[in-house]
Design a protein around this nucleic acid. Structure first.
Lengths: 242, 242
DNA sequence: CGGTTGTTTGAACTGATTCAATCTGTGTGG
DNA sequence: CCACACAGATTGAATCAGTTCAAACAACCG
């Protein structure tokens, strides 16, 4: 029973997510009535290969998807994450990146040919999705700062803070950490060995406490400071910035 | 005479750029008739502060603009570039990044309130700008791979290749390098001291030859290989991929 | 139980930073 | 035309953060 309840109670429905993001009810309905299928993205299996055509809309009902690219020497870099309630818009050509699940995920997949006409017909929808795109752009820029300018501890700290925010971890006291250390390495541009040492160090310094995958934030403010985490960039709507 | 001809002959007109990017003539005209001003972005002066409202469209007539962010400890990271013929679309809220010129640049600035209604009214324009946005996204992802996964030599080599492409350097034989070593460092996430050593090393290895700011590609293929540069991500239109 | 995935640890090494000094080219004003 | 200022490029030495390689350990699952 526990597995089933986890997969479903944790899920985010499409209308729920769209409404919370500020979309008007009649437009929510319009999108909700689009034909689509629900696909399970399994662990350790590539969901979409790099180069796959981008003629799909995706919505993450539960779990987490990652976009990744692979260096010529085969080293993998995760370039974006999509948490439950977030999505991936269609592209006009093939995607340069692949898609893989971080944890087993339920993904709603619709066709671009159904999606695009609806959006074309409603300027309000265009503005809505433009805001989401802007948010993703802002996150990408922040990740570049993370990889380019922060040291290894700060990078991990920043990722933990961002993840807690995007997963709506309750009051930032603890986080059911979804990542393996290898995945943290692939996001923050380092090796899993070093991630391990960084996490151990953060625990020694009293920033977090770990038991299994669960991470307790024993000193949230200090963790934010260490990671240089300023959550402004995560709010797609200017109204939301406190 | 040489200075004047450089500033003007190198400039890219808006209709020229839009047409080349595949936009239909009547839509090119529509955008070209928008009210706008031309502003000179000076060197070493911030053109737009981080947090400035994003209610402007910009088009780079000549020169290069950079988007940058600053870490909490004050270290600067350049997160995107806009070469002549490229632009910056309006945003719904304040921008998280600042804008600064890499070299003195002429920028056409229009108002979002003039721009948005035109785009709203023409689905073809929406598709057009969506493709440009997708291209910028792809470049951002590639930069993440660069910072996260490649060593310092590869990062610089990759940047040089990308710059040669985006500046349409003739047949990839040489490049009027627009960057200071400090700027290369701010793009590739390292220190200017190391960039200096990397460039010297690349010259020693016969990949490039330098005289002043001019860089000659003495071994373009090897430079590409070292930088892991696969230019696919730079083509906004799938047709263009050779 | 055996197999697999992920975590932890150690030791050696290396790539990149830091700090500091020097050098070069260019533009400015006297 | 020279002196000076200034931005940028170059170099050296010391240090350090992060990688690499290798091995051991823990947890989980069929």
């Amino acid at each position: 029973m526990s597995r089933r309840s986890k997969a479903e109670s944790r899920g985010v429905s499409l209308p729920e997510a769209l409404t919370k993001a500020g979309l008007a009810p009649h437009l929510v309905n319009l999108l909700d009535q689009m034909p689509r299928i629900v696909v399970r993205a399994e662990l350790r299996r590539t969901f979409r290969e790099p180069g796959a055509t981008g003629d799909e809309v995706m919505f993450v009902r539960s779990g987490i998807l990652s976009k990744f690219k692979t260096d010529t020497s085969g080293r993998r870099q995760i370039v974006a994450l999509r948490f439950a309630g977030e999505g991936i818009l269609p592209r006009s050509g093939p995607a340069e990146y692949g898609i893989q699940a971080i944890v087993p995920s339920d993904v709603m997949v619709g066709r671009a040919e159904d999606f695009d006409p609806i959006v074309d017909a409603h300027p309000e929808l265009q503005r809505f999705f433009r805001r989401l795109i802007e948010r993703n752009e802002a996150i990408g820029y922040e990740w570049l700062v993370n990889c380019g300018r922060r040291d290894s501890t700060a990078r991990v700290a920043h990722l933990l803070c961002e993840t807690a925010f995007r997963m709506h971890a309750e009051k930032n006291t603890h986080l059911q950490n979804p990542f393996t250390q290898q995945q943290i390495a692939e996001i923050t541009g380092q090796t899993s060995v070093n991630v391990n040492r960084v996490l151990a160090d953060m625990e020694r310094r009293g920033l977090i406490r770990r038991s299994g995958r669960e991470i307790a934030f024993t000193n949230w403010n200090e963790l934010r400071r260490v990671g240089g985490f300023q959550p402004n960039y995560l709010f797609s709507n200017p109204r939301d910035v406190a």
